[in-house]
Design a protein around this nucleic acid. Sequence first.
DNA 1: GAGTTTGAAACT
DNA 2: CAGTTTCAAACTC
Length: 258
Amino acid sequence: MNRSAQRIETEILNSYQLPKTPPPVSDDVVVGELGFKPRRACNCTKSQCLKLYCDCFANGEFCNRCNCDNCHNNLENEGLRQKAIRACLERNPNAFRPKIGKTKAGGPEIIRRHNKGCNCKRSGCLKNYCECYEAKIACTSMCKCVGCRNVEEGLQRRHPPVSSLYRPPPPTDIKQPCSFMTAEVIEAVCQCLIAASVDSSERARPEEEADPVRDVIEEFSRCLQDVISASHHAAPHHLSHEVSVLIWNWSRANRICA
DNA sequence: GAGTTTGAAACT
DNA sequence: CAGTTTCAAACTC
């Protein structure tokens, strides 16, 4: 393994550190392949777990020990699954991005907010039907909700949820699938690309013209393969979907460049 | 646990 | 792009 690959794998493994205090696990929580990153089991019956209705699929994970019927969100149906991922991305290129983003609202502090906003009509945005409320964040101007009572002040005074079921902590505590691509991994890849560009110009023989674009693209391809193999090493089942998305974007970019 | 309500996603 | 339907989770009883 070359140095860039080693660094990418190291950063990926670092991104999968266990939280210091493991969250409580209740009966309806599934523990991930490596014993961490708990999530809820889905109960899909009609979607084959290949639509965004399915939380596992939407979160970029295979179903594992869920209660779903006729599940296709698994390795045995990888072809169909890839097709479903492509269909989702065609409808919405951001379909697999986290819904809760972080923003600096003028000040230095980082605020979490729902990227798309909710559309609640009847819940007053004070029940878990509301994606903002569920994520424990106040509604914003992005929301198109009616009769919203999920405002900053209300959130601070809010009672803890009555439900005893485990709710995953905010993304800062537990890694979400997309957080696999940490700033460090991305930086490592960028450095590889810059190095490839510099090498390309230096290595070019006098009789041939340097083609840094081609060399950078080839290096990116290598980096991507490193990320894929490192990700399988780190978390064999958690990342496959995200990598699929990456590959899909990558092949699309390739077609556009061609 | 069954039935109802809700809002996101999918479809037309 | 707006209206409708489908879906699975949240909620109530």
